[in-house]
Design a protein around this nucleic acid. Structure first.
Length: 648
RNA sequence: GCCGACAUAGCUCAGCGGUAGAGCAGCUGUUUCGUAAACAGCAGGUCCUCGGUUCAAAUCCGAGUGUCGGCUCCA
């Protein structure tokens, strides 16, 4: 199974206790990821899945991998060649970067004399259509290495020459002979490429160029920025249309758009990267917060709260000052240097160390809704998913090594419990010891074994990403797929062997009266509340389940004489702690319903003469479904139960 | 941070050198209505900010800020 490493559209999730993680957007690994779930459903044993190891960014391997691992990929990669042909037709001096197949399409990078315009894209598309119509065969040719290099040098294709030179260096290092240079040509266009391709340009299906974007050569900020043209291509017109439709649907679900429409939150240039939460958004927030708080109370957490403004010396001790300073908001007061906290963990240890801890106290679970600031670079900000200010449902668990496996099992159970409220199916990725790890390798091994045992006990497949752990801790990252099949990173569970225990010299007194080192776990279930809400908005397209909808029901009096009754019903529902409003405007009932539908309010409770008389209500569901003559008390009861059950 | 695009009323957008427009929302009045828009009137703008070109700038140019699409980053 092939996992594309990263198509480069990752957006960081600010989830981890100590890290930000990538949450792939639309083009993750969706199709592939359905496989394990299906396998499990079919009763297959839950074998951990080896994760595809990504080629190092900008490496020769990556540059040479055209991404053509299937027939569809081959067609997409072929479309990239045809696009490059067309671009060369318009800009003969264009220098070609690379042009692989990617999820849903392809791209090609070019160094061009001027920025591309939408008109250019149309012209390039026209050239592509001509090439497809001409049905040029794709022909593979091999040259002696030196001849191949001379060929591309002669054409001024400096980037291709650089790739070949890197191959030469690698061959020399490994003592192997220089490989032949493989090219593919169609018509007059020749590209350094190992293929595979479709038989001829005529075999390329319906396509569309989507957008132009900047992209560094070999992914390095220090190298020139090329212009990348993204395109999409499909076997049939229907599939192309479906893809475009899917994108349209995704746009409609965009949390930034729905956030304005539903009056949940807004962003303003006076505080870029920080959301302003409107009353309705704040209601949603509070509902989520109190739900997880209830879980934490039940599962033995103790909530703490620590300062946002922290002296530099704490960050020096934790290592953030050396490693994370660029991402911290630093300020001076009376000659002292402080920073807004980007993470909660160092402060958690201060509470841990505020008194002597006994082995009987462990596991000690300190939770905190930490309000964090991270100075993300301006170009990386994006809606609620990449922000500078966010709140994490964070916790740090101090435990004895023998408690590790049970604790991780409990945490995985916690993830299932919480994600079940939203109908989300969490996927686990186990990141193991990286090359640059701190701490005793034996300790790592123990921890990894325990984590693996906990994961295996789930009886569900999970992914292993070798060497993807934090430098101080193996970790389990949790991804969820939203309703459109897009994958997001949200929760994280990190077993910290080094940073908190060692750097902060945490200890507890064991049975023998000895001070020994505890292990610690950093965990966040929602991750960043901001990001989680952004994902929820898109997952539900704004139509939140009854239990967490900002407004659960709106009472709609048909005429003014029904308003008193509406207020009465409102009061009854509010006495059950339900979030209810009355639409007392003088608009017609039809208009009130329309507005409620637009706000995606789960229940519209219509009151007219008949209902007031019988103390019943006509219940219109958001779906359009209709129930007439429902008694007030019965309905209040039902809604209260539905809310308490947190059904998705 | 880098490349490109965009920024006009609360929202969605039109206008693209010659005194700023529409729909929705808002306000006022009329209407009191049975499952996705009653009718009429009124009001609403440093056309993101600063600077420049011009007789004249929302419109052209430059810088800044923000947003969007990517890249990079995400100890």
């Amino acid at each position: 199974m092939h996992f594309r490493a990263d198509n480069g559209r990752g957006a960081a999730a600010q989830t981890g206790s100590d890290e930000s993680h990538n949450g792939a957007e639309a083009n993750g690994m969706n199709a592939d990821q359905k496989a394990p779930a299906e396998a499990a459903a079919a009763g297959a044993p839950a074998e951990p899945e080896e994760y595809f190891e990504a080629a190092v960014r900008g490496s020769v391997d990556e540059l040479l991998d055209a991404g053509a691992h299937s027939d569809l990929d081959a067609m997409r990669h072929s479309a990239a060649h045809v696009m490059a042909e067309s671009v060369l037709g318009i800009f003969p001096d264009a220098k070609l970067g690379i042009g692989p197949s990617i999820e849903d399409g392809f791209y090609y990078d070019f160094l061009l004399p001027r920025p591309l315009t939408p008109d250019d894209l149309a012209a390039i598309e026209a050239g592509m259509h001509a090439s497809v119509k001409a049905d040029h065969p794709f022909v593979r040719k091999e040259f002696e290495f030196a001849d191949g290099r001379a060929f591309f040098a002669g054409r001024g294709q400096d980037f291709k020459v650089e790739i070949l030179d890197d191959i030469a260096v690698r061959s020399k290092e490994s003592g192997e002979a220089l490989p032949p240079t493989s090219t593919f040509e169609h018509g007059t266009f020749v590209d350094l490429c190992k293929g595979p391709h479709v038989a001829s340009t005529g075999k390329i299906g319906p396509f569309k160029l989507m957008t132009v974007a900047g992209a560094y050569w070999r992914g390095s900020e220090k190298r020139p920025m090329l212009q990348r043209i993204y395109g999409t291509v499909w076997p049939t017109q229907q599939e192309l249309d479906a893809y475009i439709a899917r994108r349209e649907e995704a746009k409609k679900r965009d949390h930034r758009k729905l956030g304005v429409q539903l009056d949940l939150f807004s962003f303003h240039d006076v505080s870029p990267g920080s959301a302003f939460w409107h009353p309705k958004g704040q209601r949603l927030w509070r509902t989520l917060e109190s739900a997880i708080r209830e879980v934490q109370d039940r599962r033995g957490y103790q909530e703490v709260s620590t300062p946002m403004l922290v002296h530099k010396k704490l960050w020096e001790q934790s290592g953030h000052w050396a490693n994370y300073q660029d991402n911290m908001f630093v300020l001076e007061s009376e000659g002292q240097t402080f920073s807004l906290k980007p993470m909660n963990c160092p402060e958690s240890t201060i509470i841990y160390k505020s008194r002597l801890r006994s082995y009987r106290d462990l596991p000690l679970r300190l939770s905190e809704f930490g309000r964090l600031h991270r100075n993300e670079r301006s170009g990386t900000l994006s809606g609620l998913t990449r922000v500078r200010h966010f709140v994490q449902d964070d916790a740090h668990i101090y435990l004895r090594p023998d408690q590790l496996q049970e604790e991780i099992k409990a945490l995985l159970g916690e993830v299932y419990e919480v994600y079940g409220w939203f109908g989300l199916d969490p996927k686990f990725t186990f990141g193991t010891r990286p090359d640059k790890a701190l701490g005793d390798p034996a300790l790592w091994e123990t921890a990894e074994t325990q984590i693996k045992a906990a994961l295996d006990s789930l009886g569900k497949p999970y992914r292993i990403k070798p060497k993807d752990g934090a430098f101080y801790a193996p970790k389990i990252d949790i991804q969820i797929e939203d309703a459109l099949g897009r994958e997001w990173q949200t929760a994280t569970i990190q077993v910290d062997l080094v940073m908190l225990p060692e750097r902060f010299d945490c200890t507890y007194i064991d049975e023998n009266g000895q001070a020994v080192r505890p292990m610690t776990i950093h965990r966040a279930i929602y991750g960043s509340l901001e990001r989680f809400i952004g994902v929820l908005v898109e997952h539900f397209a704004g139509a939140f389940p009854v239990w967490c909808a900002p407004t659960q029901a709106v009472v709609i009096p048909i005429a003014d004489r029904h308003i008193d009754g509406a207020r009465e019903l409102e009061a009854l529902l509010k006495s059950h702690k339900l979030r209810v409003e009355v639409d007392g405007s003088d608009a017609r009932m039809q208009n009130k319903i329309r507005l409620a539908q637009e706000q995606k309010i789960p229940y519209m409770l219509v009151l007219g003469d008949r209902e007031i008389e019988a103390r019943t209500v006509a219940v219109r569901h958001r779906s359009g479904e209709q129930e007439n003559g429902v008694g007030w008390d019965a309905f209040a009861q039902r809604m209260a139960e539905e809310t308490a059950a947190r059904r998705p």
